[in-house]
Write a protein that binds this DNA or RNA. Structure first.
Lengths: 339, 339
DNA sequence: CTGAAAGCGCTTACAG
DNA sequence: CTGAAAGCGCTTACAG
């Protein structure tokens, strides 16, 4: 059951394969009757061009890679959709990879993707990108766009949001509400997006006391750390989770512990997932344009792929904003004082 | 900046490309010093085999396609993760496609994927699969596994859940609570999974009155239909949404309309997403094994790809179960009667 | 153990 | 307008 190839079409139409190729690709003049014959045969034989063979000669695979930590995090699902839409619009396929933020797994995907001859890779890098890693990325031979801003580096492009400012907004908001004893559910220690949010947050609360707890950037991570926090620092009145999914985990733990949000403890997240408006209570959080990030990242990737090699890397930073809902309020002490 | 190819390695090591190939692929005996030389050169030149060229000759692309309606639906994100994990374990790449359940878009992806020579396709088909469509899928030349069960067809494989039974459980549960006036947020009219859930539900409520409303299987779809329902059938006391995301949309609408769940109206979903436990109130829903479905689907795909063509299609149906949380309760009338 | 040849399915100058 | 050739980067019998 061999698939029908260009050879079959050529044989059946009594012309050379090069003629078939030209005919099907619209390049070059073809006699009208020759064309009709070829087209008819191709249709009859249900000919489908093999794009990988084509790619081998044209040097273009028309595929892109996307490496995220875990597509189950709705943040990455939104982002992936933006990425796929942009790829689709440009006639590209998107290969989805889940790194779990594990370095070796990420490395494996990276080389697998270049061996598959993708024309670009967008990646949420598993760690802070240092000089050595940047060199590695730059040496891959395909454009890479980072989803986290590589601080102080200049070989590789990025699309990111103003993580620092988002963290700052969250901190200032909670401090403004009157909180003084904070906790920071900070995600993975070495992930730059989270690190920046943490640093913004600390500046936002202007040096007030903050317990910082690291974990996976998952619901389970937030859940476990919230429990830890409850026993280690029961006097905490406000939590900033550096993504919404961790905030969801914290909500669950707080709920199970019989704590009411925001009466007993305030909670602010980061991402503004669709579902964040539907939790109990609706989550106050920092909005970032997830879909647009994904879309912009593949568009940039494609630009870079077309551009001559060694154009200067470009960095684009999207804005963020605080979305106030119901999960944060003044601390009980102050609320009482008001009465 | 041409990438280094097997030719470069051959030239630099003073051997033929076929020797390099054999050396790198482990096939055939190679003189130890020849091997070392080749390996050293390959490393020095940072040689990376071009897998698409390799695939062209071996006839194996080591990639798979996954077509879902929208990865932003957490159901598909979970499923996709199961699929990607299985693909990764087998050394395959996964190409992600979002069809939005639109027929033409789906068709486009389908042919694009076979032209890319994927070795298998798992797809949540946009509509009920009729004979003609089944024939089309079977003629693609690569194994296809459907994520919805093709009723009464026998050319193509499927991994699905017992949708009918899930709908039935939901209906019987709500009817058992004492409800008599139901609404069904039924999703797309021609999607077989949803149709089966609806049919099970109707049997579960044993012919009681049920308003049925179709929409996209999205949060927005559920939201809009819940509003419609509120004005068209304000006497409804129980809603079954045939997926959780639509249930979330309904929750939002109900909330905005000042209706309390479950006091004023009961709600049951289908999927049991991670977030369904965190909504206000936590959602009673039908659990289905999302990750496992995705995993099983690609494993089946891979089996089918290895097996000789024209093995009989296989159908596997996972079980479902009702997860009771807080979004459904007896209707007000009965609750009052109890006092 | 190693090389030369043929070929995977296609495209692209180059002639004619 | 069309064909013959060379080649994309690799693999795989087949000789030797």
């Amino acid at each position: 059951l061999g698939k029908t190839t260009i050879k079959d079409v050529a044989r059946e139409s009594g012309v050379d394969v090069s003629t078939v190729s030209r005919c099907l690709n619209g390049g070059g003049r073809i006699g009208p009757k020759t064309r009709d014959r070829i087209l008819a045969v191709a249709a009859r034989l249900q000919y489908r061009p093999n794009r990988v063979a084509r790619g081998l000669v044209t040097g273009r695979s028309h595929s892109l890679g996307l490496i995220v930590s875990d597509i189950r995090n709705p943040f990455f699902a939104e982002l992936a959709r933006g990425a796929e839409d942009a790829a689709y619009a440009a006639g590209y396929d998107l290969i989805l990879c889940n790194s779990d933020l594990r370095h070796e797994k990420q490395l494996g995907y990276l080389s697998s993707l270049v061996e598959k001859a993708v024309e670009g890779i967008v990646i949420n890098y598993a760690a802070a990108v240092d000089r050595k890693q940047e060199r590695h990325l730059a040496s891959l031979g395909v454009p890479v766009v980072l989803l986290n801003r590589p601080e102080g580096l200049n070989k590789v492009s990025s699309i990111s949001v103003d993580n620092y400012h988002g963290g700052f907004l969250a901190g200032r908001y909670l401090a403004g509400l009157g909180h003084r004893r904070f906790a920071l559910l900070a995600g993975p220690e070495d992930q730059s997006n989270h690190a920046l949010r943490a640093s913004g947050f600390r500046d936002g609360i202007a040096g007030a006391d903050a317990t910082i707890l690291h974990s996976d950037q998952t619901l389970a991570g937030g859940y476990q750390n919230a429990w830890k926090l409850l026993s280690a620092r029961p006097d905490t009145t406000a939590i900033f989770a550096s993504n919404d999914v961790m905030a969801f985990g914290a909500m669950r733990a707080l709920n199970e512990a019989g704590k009411q949000i925001p009466r007993d403890i305030s909670l602010v997240g980061f991402d503004n997932l669709q579902l964040s408006a539907l939790t109990q209570p609706p989550l106050t959080t920092i909005d970032q344009p997830k879909y647009e990030i994904g879309k912009a990242a593949v568009e940039l990737c494609l630009d870079l792929a077309c551009a001559e090699m060694h154009v200067a890397p470009v960095h684009r930073v999207f804005g963020v904003e605080l979305v106030e809902r119901k999960s944060a309020a003044p601390p009980a002490s102050r609320a009482e004082a008001r009465r």
